[in-house]
């Protein structure tokens, strides 16, 4: 069953077309990686799907709800972990988690319970009462994803979730993302191709606002006649100038 059906999705800024007639379906429980060089249209696509910006044309249906006709219903079913850590710096880890739970409608008792659950799940128990501004980059990223998951979203958008993390912190986060697979539909954007190989079920490569190709790692290698994903990606993105 499809979690996301995107039809002719387009976003223009004046004369610039950031996303050009995007058509794509993503199945429930799938982890879909959206790749592309900077400015390819990945983040704009994610912003449209998460109802942060309105498309210029086309539509997307997420779990039966249109982003154009019923964005509020869409917002109840999804959550986002933005490129930046997007946490409240002077609040504690617990307060950040409870805040997001409360904003999505959980009462005080349920928020506290959810905050403790997510903290255990993401290994944040030892820093639960610490202000988030003193946490390491890896811990902040983990918290950011925990904040996105505390609302039990059916679709999760992860925009470059391991950006700037060291190898160990990245591997820890991969393990956390693997735990979510199949339970939550995940759309991931990243520049780390080993991350894509390790986590994703399918890959879409965007170039200049268009979806150039969609397939598994094996399908992309076969299609481009390359030996690894990096070469396939370079080939699909138009090659090195």
């Amino acid at each position: 069953m499809n979690a996301i059906t995107i039809t002719n999705l387009t976003k223009k800024y004046g004369g610039l077309t950031a996303v050009d007639n995007l058509n794509l379906t993503i199945e429930k429980g799938e982890l879909f990686a959206l790749l592309g060089v900077n400015g390819a249209g990945k983040t704009t696509t994610l912003k449209m799907l998460s109802c942060l910006i309105r498309p210029t044309g086309g539509d997307a249906v997420l779990l039966g709800e249109s982003i154009l006709k019923n964005p509020n219903a869409v917002k109840q079913k999804i959550n986002v972990s933005p490129q930046e850590t997007a946490i409240a710096p002077n609040l504690t880890v617990f307060e950040n988690l409870a805040l997001i739970a409360g904003i999505y409608g959980q009462n005080a008792a349920a928020s506290r319970k959810s905050a403790h659950e997510m903290s255990s799940r993401f290994g944040l128990d030892d820093v639960l009462e610490k202000k988030t501004k003193v946490l390491s980059g890896g811990m902040q990223r983990r918290l950011s994803i925990a904040m996105a998951l505390i609302t039990n979203p059916q679709i999760l958008f992860l925009d470059e979730p391991t950006l700037g993390l060291d190898v160990l912190a990245r591997r820890e986060l991969w393990a956390a993302i693997r735990q979510m697979k199949t339970k939550v539909t995940i759309i991931l954007t990243t520049h780390y191709l080993e991350e894509v190989e390790a986590l994703s079920d399918r890959i879409g490569v965007m170039t200049k606002g268009r979806l150039a190709v969609v397939g598994t790692v094996a399908e992309l290698l076969l299609q481009t006649g390359t030996a690894n994903l990096e070469d396939a990606f370079v080939s699909l993105s138009g090659g090195v100038p």
Binding site: L52, S81, P82, T85, A86, I87, A88, I100, Y104, T151
Partner: peptide, 14 residues
């Protein structure tokens, strides 16, 4: 705004 905390909240039902 610059830390994207607001972006996270914009994606919520607020």
């Amino acid at each position: 705004r610059t830390s994207s905390f607001l972006l996270r909240l914009f994606a919520s039902p607020m």
